[in-house]
Write a protein that binds this DNA or RNA. Structure first.
Lengths: 351, 351
DNA sequence: ACAATGAGCTAACACGAATTACTAATTTGA
DNA sequence: TCAAATTAGTAATTCGTGTTAGCTCATTGT
């Protein structure tokens, strides 16, 4: 592969001149048009491409961000990545994806980030310890860190997350407007992210002055493809002593869809007798039967915002000390799984 | 960030000695244990990390592969990426993801690959022209290229694809074994990948000596979230003059699920009256109602194999000239959307 | 006429590592 | 005992680029 020196030889100018022309720094040093052209022609004729590695090394600034991901096969991850890629391209940065084992961060992964001299690092779905570890190590090397879709307490570094209050207001508000009063939530095993959504659910229900009977917020876990646990939970919910909920919110789309399936199998009409709302709006929401009303989480925007923030910090590292969370709004996509609440008497029938 | 020179100063040895110790090349040059230890201690005390950029530059070998992706938000892409990441880690390579605009490859993206001095490049879902362009440019720089999930004609470079014949045999075989004789296929707008699947379908049907009435293979397109086109096609299929198919294979999972929804809405019982099989086995297959029987495409394996092949080529570029396609087998995940074919008389009832 | 200016370049060093060639001190062999 | 071989290193060069300092020549001002 040709180097600048080759171009210089061909254009019969010095190596430095080539550098100046190719980097467009002829503002500082006047290069007459004919010399410029000679250099450019020589460069294209030789098929010269600049060596990003060498530039990065000499400038000490690697225009490359690391994306630490635990579950690269998840659609949510993929969508954040998509957003991050678009934004990175705008800033002429590139993205390196690094896989973690589960949501733990081992020393080896940290080492890789440091060895690659990444300009910044973003991470999703890390556990508490790993996150602290990451912050510590990166702070030592002055490398900015962005944490995606994970409430931080205390805030440390850059956080980019969905505005869960707003998102839940969309879900609950939609159902409440349709007349639903008995709304249940199927949640996940505790983790910061699900706790935040749960809290938002309870707060919103309070705003709407809707009661949450004991057991209306239940926790399950999907170990795909085994969803029996959630199915059991749903069945219990459907014959709840305080009355069957007229709407169920799944804290993720899979949760909602498993519950929806149980309702189908129990012979319930959706949405005539019971409504379902998902959270995430993954592709599966569009293609379920009936199509699932779901809160569309701003995955792309989260990825994009994280990159934007990182690039800002790289450019102006002075205010490293100010940690903050950026909240991004969700949208509601209303589909066929939600409808008006059934009339009171309808619920009294045996199911 | 500390350099080798700092370590050398601290350990009171020469810079070169540090290099030899840290690269474990003390086989060639005996370094006594105490010196070795002194260097290692100095390195850890200073928190030295080697500079992958500098190594790559001087050695001319960048342990980094490019993953050119058109639709990073697609689950299929994500799963290939996951497989690629795992394999790359094994070989101590890292992966850089580059986004393309649609499935066209512009000169700018090529330039990026070259500027980054990638050791190899893998691409998915590129159109014909872009692929030729990519091959041309990369061949010029001796950079190996792997094409994922796309039949190549003629074969050029490394191809890694699903064995469509085998995959279709799984789908059709499963249905045939359940007694289905009237099997329809809902395909996509022509493209190499769908043409290959269609051809495999026809071939397999022939093997089973099953007829394919005119119109049983129809082509649609999903412009998510608008699936009306597919819905129309399905409705036509359900009142086909040659008799309603007892099973429909979707050439992608979304195709199958849209068709399944139409069947639901037409009041048909699934799978008692009609069966559905998807192709891809995306997450949506697991969470649909009823859960979709689907051909699981070896996305992870495809990503992994591509990386493996690329790494091989990088290590031994001598046999660049031998293009080949690697076929990977699919698996069938039987779920609730398929069942025994309905008895003949059942079909004669008005639907 | 001669210094001061500026245009248009070039030489030389830096970046952080790999690698080759070389040396000084010690041990071995005959 | 003296040359050869081995041990334990070091100095110097290289990779492809960015950057700074400086150099030559022509033009301008007085």
């Amino acid at each position: 592969m040709k180097t600048m020196r080759d171009v210089a030889a061909k254009a019969e100018v010095s190596y430095t001149t080539v550098s100046f022309v190719l980097n467009g720094r002829d503002g500082e040093m006047r290069i007459p048009e004919d010399t410029r052209q000679r250099v450019l022609v020589a460069a294209t004729e030789l098929g010269y491409r600049r060596n990003e590695l060498a530039r990065a090394m000499v400038s000490g600034r690697n225009r490359m961000l690391g994306f630490l991901v635990s579950f690269p096969e998840a659609e949510a991850t993929a969508r954040m990545l998509a957003g991050a890629l678009d934004e990175a391209e705008k800033h002429n940065y590139s993205l390196k994806v690094l896989k973690l084992n589960g949501n733990r961060l081992d020393r080896q992964s940290i080492e890789r980030c440091l060895e690659l001299r990444l300009a910044g690092v973003m991470a999703i779905y890390l556990d508490e310890d790993s996150l602290n570890f990451l912050h510590e190590e990166m702070a030592r090397q002055q490398i900015p860190v962005a944490v995606l879709e994970r409430p931080q307490r205390p805030a440390s570094g850059i956080g980019v997350i969905t505005d869960d209050s707003q998102a839940m207001r969309l879900a609950v508000g939609h159902l409440a407007a349709l007349g639903h009063r008995r709304i249940a939530l199927i949640s996940e095993q505790p983790s910061l992210i699900f706790e935040a959504r749960e809290a938002a659910f309870r707060a919103t229900m309070r705003e709407w002055k809707l009661p949450i009977p004991e057991g209306y917020v239940s926790r399950g876990q999907i170990n795909a493809p085994d969803s029996r646990f959630i199915e059991d939970i749903t069945r219990q919910l459907l014959c709840h002593p305080a009355g069957r909920p007229t709407a169920i919110i799944g804290i993720t789309d899979p949760m909602a869809l498993v519950a929806l399936r149980v309702a189908h199998e129990s012979g319930l009409q959706v949405p005539q007798e019971i409504s379902f709302v998902g959270y995430g709006d993954l592709a599966m929401a569009t293609y379920s039967y009936p199509a699932l009303t779901s809160v569309e989480l701003p995955f792309r925007e989260i990825g994009g915002a994280a990159v934007r923030r990182l690039v800002e910090r790289v450019a102006a590292p002075q205010d490293q000390a100010a940690p903050f969370d950026e909240l991004l709004p969700a949208r509601l996509n209303v589909r066929s799984s939600t409808g008006p609440a059934p009339r009171e008497e309808a619920r009294q029938e045996p199911s």
